[in-house]
Nucleic acid binder design. Structure first.
Length: 273
DNA sequence: AACAAATGCAACCGCATGTCG
DNA sequence: TCGACATGCGGTTGCATTTGT
Protein backbone atom coordinates (compact mmCIF):
# COMPACT_ATOMS: atom_id res chain seq x y z
CA UNK A 1 0.00 0.00 0.00
CA UNK A 2 1.58 3.22 -1.12
CA UNK A 3 1.61 6.45 0.70
CA UNK A 4 -1.02 8.94 -0.35
CA UNK A 5 0.36 11.87 -2.34
CA UNK A 6 0.67 15.16 -0.50
CA UNK A 7 -1.72 16.73 -2.97
CA UNK A 8 -3.72 15.97 -6.05
CA UNK A 9 -1.12 16.38 -8.71
CA UNK A 10 -3.64 16.52 -11.53
CA UNK A 11 -5.10 19.77 -10.26
CA UNK A 12 -2.00 21.66 -9.19
CA UNK A 13 0.18 24.17 -10.95
CA UNK A 14 3.89 23.54 -11.17
CA UNK A 15 6.91 25.57 -12.09
CA UNK A 16 7.55 29.22 -11.53
CA UNK A 17 5.17 31.16 -9.33
CA UNK A 18 3.23 34.07 -10.74
CA UNK A 19 2.91 37.43 -8.98
CA UNK A 20 -0.73 36.72 -8.40
CA UNK A 21 0.05 33.42 -6.68
CA UNK A 22 2.69 35.11 -4.55
CA UNK A 23 0.21 37.76 -3.56
CA UNK A 24 -2.43 35.23 -2.60
CA UNK A 25 0.02 33.23 -0.54
CA UNK A 26 1.41 36.27 1.22
CA UNK A 27 -1.92 37.76 2.07
CA UNK A 28 -3.20 34.44 3.34
CA UNK A 29 -0.20 33.89 5.59
CA UNK A 30 -0.35 37.48 6.83
CA UNK A 31 -3.96 36.92 7.80
CA UNK A 32 -3.74 33.39 9.16
CA UNK A 33 -0.10 32.73 9.89
CA UNK A 34 2.08 29.83 8.82
CA UNK A 35 1.18 26.21 9.28
CA UNK A 36 -1.22 23.57 8.03
CA UNK A 37 0.41 23.65 4.63
CA UNK A 38 -1.71 20.82 3.35
CA UNK A 39 -4.93 22.74 3.65
CA UNK A 40 -3.43 26.15 2.93
CA UNK A 41 -3.56 26.04 -0.89
CA UNK A 42 -7.28 25.35 -0.94
CA UNK A 43 -7.98 27.95 1.73
CA UNK A 44 -5.86 30.53 -0.05
CA UNK A 45 -7.37 29.74 -3.44
CA UNK A 46 -4.13 28.42 -4.86
CA UNK A 47 -3.76 25.55 -7.28
CA UNK A 48 -0.53 24.50 -5.66
CA UNK A 49 0.75 21.67 -3.54
CA UNK A 50 1.13 22.51 0.15
CA UNK A 51 4.78 21.66 -0.01
CA UNK A 52 5.24 24.04 -2.87
CA UNK A 53 3.54 26.82 -0.90
CA UNK A 54 5.74 26.19 2.10
CA UNK A 55 8.88 26.24 -0.01
CA UNK A 56 7.85 29.41 -1.80
CA UNK A 57 7.14 31.14 1.49
CA UNK A 58 10.29 29.99 3.26
CA UNK A 59 12.69 30.54 0.40
CA UNK A 60 11.28 33.61 -1.26
CA UNK A 61 8.37 35.40 0.33
CA UNK A 62 9.23 35.50 4.03
CA UNK A 63 9.62 39.15 5.04
CA UNK A 64 12.74 38.58 7.13
CA UNK A 65 14.78 37.27 4.23
CA UNK A 66 18.04 38.99 3.46
CA UNK A 67 18.40 39.17 -0.29
CA UNK A 68 21.58 40.00 -2.10
CA UNK A 69 25.15 38.82 -2.20
CA UNK A 70 26.80 36.93 0.60
CA UNK A 71 29.45 38.82 2.52
CA UNK A 72 32.96 37.56 3.07
CA UNK A 73 32.06 36.96 6.72
CA UNK A 74 29.07 34.88 5.72
CA UNK A 75 31.28 32.91 3.33
CA UNK A 76 33.74 32.07 6.04
CA UNK A 77 31.00 31.22 8.52
CA UNK A 78 29.40 28.86 6.03
CA UNK A 79 32.74 27.18 5.40
CA UNK A 80 33.38 26.86 9.10
CA UNK A 81 29.95 25.46 9.81
CA UNK A 82 30.08 23.10 6.85
CA UNK A 83 33.37 21.73 8.09
CA UNK A 84 31.65 20.98 11.37
CA UNK A 85 28.22 19.88 10.27
CA UNK A 86 28.52 18.72 6.68
CA UNK A 87 25.49 19.21 4.45
CA UNK A 88 23.19 20.16 7.30
CA UNK A 89 21.96 23.17 5.39
CA UNK A 90 19.03 23.96 7.61
CA UNK A 91 21.28 24.14 10.68
CA UNK A 92 23.81 26.24 8.84
CA UNK A 93 20.98 28.50 7.67
CA UNK A 94 19.88 28.83 11.27
CA UNK A 95 23.20 30.48 12.01
CA UNK A 96 22.84 32.97 9.17
CA UNK A 97 19.85 35.18 9.87
CA UNK A 98 17.86 36.00 6.77
CA UNK A 99 19.37 33.20 4.73
CA UNK A 100 17.57 30.01 3.78
CA UNK A 101 18.88 26.49 3.60
CA UNK A 102 18.14 26.37 -0.11
CA UNK A 103 19.98 29.61 -0.73
CA UNK A 104 23.02 28.46 1.22
CA UNK A 105 22.97 25.07 -0.46
CA UNK A 106 22.89 26.70 -3.88
CA UNK A 107 25.56 29.19 -2.87
CA UNK A 108 27.76 26.41 -1.60
CA UNK A 109 27.44 24.41 -4.79
CA UNK A 110 27.99 27.34 -7.12
CA UNK A 111 30.47 29.59 -5.30
CA UNK A 112 32.07 28.19 -2.20
CA UNK A 113 32.92 24.81 -3.65
CA UNK A 114 34.86 26.52 -6.39
CA UNK A 115 36.43 28.92 -3.94
CA UNK A 116 37.70 26.06 -1.80
CA UNK A 117 38.92 24.13 -4.80
CA UNK A 118 40.87 27.20 -5.89
CA UNK A 119 42.44 27.25 -2.45
CA UNK A 120 43.37 23.61 -2.92
CA UNK A 121 40.87 22.42 -0.36
CA UNK A 122 38.53 19.54 -0.93
CA UNK A 123 35.06 20.96 -0.19
CA UNK A 124 33.79 17.60 0.96
CA UNK A 125 36.49 16.90 3.51
CA UNK A 126 37.91 20.39 4.10
CA UNK A 127 41.34 18.95 3.67
CA UNK A 128 44.10 19.80 1.28
CA UNK A 129 43.48 18.14 -2.07
CA UNK A 130 47.19 17.25 -2.27
CA UNK A 131 47.08 15.62 1.12
CA UNK A 132 48.16 12.01 0.46
CA UNK A 133 47.09 11.01 3.94
CA UNK A 134 43.49 11.99 3.37
CA UNK A 135 41.55 8.93 4.39
CA UNK A 136 38.33 7.78 2.83
CA UNK A 137 35.55 9.49 4.67
CA UNK A 138 33.53 6.91 6.46
CA UNK A 139 30.25 7.39 8.21
CA UNK A 140 32.02 7.34 11.53
CA UNK A 141 34.81 9.77 10.87
CA UNK A 142 35.48 12.52 13.31
CA UNK A 143 34.26 15.98 12.49
CA UNK A 144 37.01 18.11 11.01
CA UNK A 145 37.57 21.75 11.76
CA UNK A 146 39.73 23.73 9.40
CA UNK A 147 41.71 26.63 10.73
CA UNK A 148 43.09 27.57 7.36
CA UNK A 149 46.75 27.71 6.52
CA UNK A 150 49.28 29.29 8.77
CA UNK A 151 52.99 29.43 8.29
CA UNK A 152 54.24 27.60 11.30
CA UNK A 153 56.22 25.20 9.20
CA UNK A 154 59.45 26.53 10.56
CA UNK A 155 58.48 26.33 14.20
CA UNK A 156 60.25 23.96 16.43
CA UNK A 157 58.27 21.07 17.83
CA UNK A 158 57.67 22.72 21.19
CA UNK A 159 56.31 25.91 19.66
CA UNK A 160 54.09 23.95 17.34
CA UNK A 161 52.76 21.97 20.24
CA UNK A 162 52.01 25.18 22.03
CA UNK A 163 50.13 26.55 19.05
CA UNK A 164 48.23 23.32 18.61
CA UNK A 165 47.35 23.27 22.27
CA UNK A 166 46.06 26.81 22.02
CA UNK A 167 43.91 25.82 19.07
CA UNK A 168 42.71 22.81 20.94
CA UNK A 169 41.81 25.00 23.90
CA UNK A 170 40.02 27.42 21.62
CA UNK A 171 37.90 24.66 20.15
CA UNK A 172 37.26 23.26 23.59
CA UNK A 173 36.01 26.61 24.70
CA UNK A 174 34.09 26.96 21.50
CA UNK A 175 32.01 23.86 22.02
CA UNK A 176 32.31 23.19 25.69
CA UNK A 177 33.36 19.73 24.77
CA UNK A 178 36.26 17.40 24.85
CA UNK A 179 38.50 17.68 21.84
CA UNK A 180 40.98 15.05 20.88
CA UNK A 181 43.89 15.95 18.69
CA UNK A 182 45.28 13.80 15.94
CA UNK A 183 48.77 14.93 14.95
CA UNK A 184 48.41 14.01 11.28
CA UNK A 185 49.79 17.24 9.94
CA UNK A 186 52.76 17.15 12.23
CA UNK A 187 53.55 13.65 11.16
CA UNK A 188 53.37 14.38 7.50
CA UNK A 189 54.39 18.01 7.39
CA UNK A 190 51.31 19.05 5.51
CA UNK A 191 51.05 22.79 5.04
CA UNK A 192 47.28 22.93 5.34
CA UNK A 193 46.70 22.92 9.04
CA UNK A 194 43.42 21.13 9.22
CA UNK A 195 43.13 19.64 12.64
CA UNK A 196 41.47 16.29 12.82
CA UNK A 197 39.15 16.77 15.74
CA UNK A 198 36.85 14.38 17.41
CA UNK A 199 33.97 16.06 19.15
CA UNK A 200 32.37 14.35 22.06
CA UNK A 201 29.95 15.43 24.77
CA UNK A 202 31.45 17.40 27.65
CA UNK A 203 33.28 15.48 30.26
CA UNK A 204 31.96 15.05 33.79
CA UNK A 205 34.54 17.59 34.87
CA UNK A 206 33.05 20.23 32.61
CA UNK A 207 29.58 19.34 33.73
CA UNK A 208 30.67 19.77 37.31
CA UNK A 209 32.15 23.11 36.39
CA UNK A 210 28.83 24.23 34.99
CA UNK A 211 27.13 23.17 38.18
CA UNK A 212 29.73 25.07 40.18
CA UNK A 213 28.96 28.12 38.09
CA UNK A 214 25.30 27.68 38.87
CA UNK A 215 25.95 27.45 42.56
CA UNK A 216 28.29 30.40 42.66
CA UNK A 217 26.00 32.45 40.46
CA UNK A 218 29.02 33.65 38.51
CA UNK A 219 29.54 33.10 34.86
CA UNK A 220 32.60 31.11 33.99
CA UNK A 221 35.02 32.78 31.68
CA UNK A 222 35.75 29.57 29.79
CA UNK A 223 32.11 28.77 29.17
CA UNK A 224 31.58 30.41 25.82
CA UNK A 225 28.43 29.50 24.00
CA UNK A 226 28.29 28.35 20.40
CA UNK A 227 26.89 31.66 19.19
CA UNK A 228 29.69 33.68 20.78
CA UNK A 229 32.32 31.33 19.48
CA UNK A 230 31.09 31.98 15.97
CA UNK A 231 31.09 35.71 16.42
CA UNK A 232 27.35 35.95 17.00
CA UNK A 233 27.63 37.39 20.45
CA UNK A 234 24.92 39.89 19.84
CA UNK A 235 22.53 37.36 18.42
CA UNK A 236 19.63 35.89 20.33
CA UNK A 237 21.48 32.62 20.29
CA UNK A 238 24.03 33.77 22.81
CA UNK A 239 23.46 31.61 25.80
CA UNK A 240 26.53 32.39 27.85
CA UNK A 241 24.36 33.60 30.67
CA UNK A 242 21.87 30.75 30.52
CA UNK A 243 23.41 28.77 33.34
CA UNK A 244 23.23 31.72 35.67
CA UNK A 245 19.82 32.90 34.64
CA UNK A 246 18.41 29.42 35.18
CA UNK A 247 18.80 30.13 38.89
CA UNK A 248 17.14 27.77 41.28
CA UNK A 249 15.52 25.86 38.51
CA UNK A 250 18.91 24.52 37.69
CA UNK A 251 17.45 21.05 37.45
CA UNK A 252 16.06 22.00 34.08
CA UNK A 253 19.47 22.98 32.80
CA UNK A 254 20.88 20.03 30.98
CA UNK A 255 24.14 20.00 29.21
CA UNK A 256 23.34 20.95 25.66
CA UNK A 257 26.14 20.21 23.32
CA UNK A 258 25.14 21.08 19.75
CA UNK A 259 21.64 20.42 20.89
CA UNK A 260 22.69 17.15 22.41
CA UNK A 261 20.61 16.70 25.48
CA UNK A 262 20.83 13.43 27.28
CA UNK A 263 22.94 12.01 24.49
CA UNK A 264 20.41 12.55 21.73
CA UNK A 265 21.41 14.95 19.02
CA UNK A 266 18.63 17.40 18.38
CA UNK A 267 19.62 19.41 15.36
CA UNK A 268 16.49 21.49 15.49
CA UNK A 269 17.36 22.99 18.81
CA UNK A 270 20.26 24.61 17.04
CA UNK A 271 18.16 26.41 14.58
CA UNK A 272 17.63 30.11 14.85
CA UNK A 273 13.92 30.66 15.09
C1' DA B 1 24.19 38.62 -34.60
C1' DA B 2 23.68 33.85 -33.66
C1' DC B 3 24.64 29.98 -31.33
C1' DA B 4 26.56 26.97 -27.66
C1' DA B 5 28.24 26.36 -23.17
C1' DA B 6 28.36 27.66 -18.53
C1' DT B 7 26.23 29.43 -14.58
C1' DG B 8 22.85 30.49 -10.98
C1' DC B 9 18.82 29.73 -8.72
C1' DA B 10 13.92 28.46 -7.99
C1' DA B 11 11.36 24.59 -7.58
C1' DC B 12 10.48 19.64 -7.38
C1' DC B 13 10.97 14.97 -5.51
C1' DG B 14 11.48 11.35 -2.36
C1' DC B 15 12.69 10.06 2.05
C1' DA B 16 13.15 10.90 7.10
C1' DT B 17 11.26 12.52 11.12
C1' DG B 18 7.79 14.30 14.23
C1' DT B 19 3.10 14.35 15.96
C1' DC B 20 -1.22 12.73 17.17
C1' DG B 21 -5.15 9.74 17.76
C1' DT C 1 2.63 0.74 20.64
C1' DC C 2 1.31 1.45 16.09
C1' DG C 3 -0.14 3.54 11.95
C1' DA C 4 -1.50 7.56 9.36
C1' DC C 5 -0.63 11.98 8.33
C1' DA C 6 1.99 16.49 8.21
C1' DT C 7 6.12 18.70 7.90
C1' DG C 8 11.04 19.28 7.09
C1' DC C 9 15.32 18.22 4.81
C1' DG C 10 18.77 17.37 1.33
C1' DG C 11 19.65 16.02 -3.36
C1' DT C 12 18.51 16.90 -7.93
C1' DT C 13 16.42 18.96 -11.95
C1' DG C 14 14.99 22.36 -15.22
C1' DC C 15 15.00 26.72 -16.98
C1' DA C 16 16.35 31.58 -17.47
C1' DT C 17 20.27 34.35 -17.83
C1' DT C 18 25.01 35.32 -18.75
C1' DT C 19 29.29 34.61 -21.03
C1' DG C 20 32.26 33.03 -24.61
C1' DT C 21 33.14 31.95 -29.47
Amino acid sequence: MGRSPCCEKAHTNKGAWTKEEDGRLMSYIRAHGEGCWRSLPKAAGLLRCGKSCRLRWINYLRPDLKRGNFTEEEDELIIKLHSLLGNKWSIIAGRLPGRTDNEIKNYWNTHIRRKLLNRGIDPATHRSINDPSTPERSTNTATTISFGASNNKNMNAASRDQVEDQKSMAVRGMFGCKVERFPLQEQHGIPDLNLELKISPPSCYQYQQQEAVLKSGRNHSAAVCFACSLGLKSSNDCSCGDYVSAGKNSAVVQHDFLGLKGGVLDYRSLEMK
